[in-house]
Design a protein around this nucleic acid. Sequence first.
DNA 1: GTCTATACATCGATAGAC
DNA 2: GTCTATCGATGTATAGAC
Lengths: 193, 193
Amino acid sequence: MIGKVADRRQAKVATIVAAAWGLARVNGIGAVSLRALAREVGMRQPSLYEYFDSKHALYDAMFADGNRQLLERLEALPPDQDPRRALKSFMRTLADFALEDDARHALLFQRPIPGYEPGPEAYPDAERVLGRAVELMAAAGVDDPGDVDCIVAVVGGLIDAQTSNDPGGDRWVRHLDRLIDLHLDDANRRSTR
Amino acid sequence: MIGKVADRRQAKVATIVAAAWGLARVNGIGAVSLRALAREVGMRQPSLYEYFDSKHALYDAMFADGNRQLLERLEALPPDQDPRRALKSFMRTLADFALEDDARHALLFQRPIPGYEPGPEAYPDAERVLGRAVELMAAAGVDDPGDVDCIVAVVGGLIDAQTSNDPGGDRWVRHLDRLIDLHLDDANRRSTR
DNA sequence: GTCTATACATCGATAGAC
DNA sequence: GTCTATCGATGTATAGAC
């Protein structure tokens, strides 16, 4: 088996990434230091360079991992014939995912690290998430890209307000379903006219 | 005049804060270093501690200054008898202000600096901004706090999407007026029923 | 692959002379 | 009030032993 050594390496990479998420949850994504991360996984700092060429490469791995987690959860949703119910379920899952872990939400959907932008190789999963959202909205009768943009912005706005101003509560996200209906109704009304 | 020395000090503080905004605009709010800031105002780095006890104190001064700028601009708006027009004008001014300067928008409305939260002494102006928004919405017939939250979140969502995904464009903010009407109509419909 | 050791850059912060 | 000098932390990177 030639793959065994590569597998072990991948497992170690996964361990390191998981430990990095742990540190990020405690002190914030910007406070993950390579020395602390190495300590967490029982290594010395230079040894991490065996697995990541730079700190940005670590961020890329975390970004890709986070998007993979999200995509996995979204794809596990049971299919729903009712396009509205399907869209709401999708968006609620997205919101729950974002609210579960501030640091992960920040890395995936904001630019919390000065000088770091996710590399292109980490984007495919992120684009699949958005693509699925667009599909679901189309099924619900939203054909104007402007309406898609609005719904995306509204959901993002609710999530951001929730995490910033009422972490752990539901003061904003409790309006999620109602606002989706409001915007779908409005989009349908304007497209059938 | 006893106040003269204090005035001079305040003027110097203002100069430093202005220079800090300049650096933030160029490299991002997170990349403002005390050494670069000192260089900018013709000082050495330790001398800045004569004016700010810590870097967080500098951030607090910038936060207060940004909110003061915003409040000034909002209070300069001409009064408008039509509550909807007044609210839209308020929100458009807010959006323009946010889109003008990414770094300022980030410091005022997000938490872009790991470990930094604005101190309580910097909040009054920020609360006056929100208070004015609530007043305008009340005048437009929005009496449910949940509806106020939704409109705040929607405007914030449009602004964030705009800065993140189409800086300099209007792909999201062009929907601002329409979405405000949509949400006001919905709030009014539900409150008069 | 992992280690020790080291180099050099940056950063915020402090001590103490003037 | 401003300076020089310095501290300890960081990230990045390398050399070389095992």
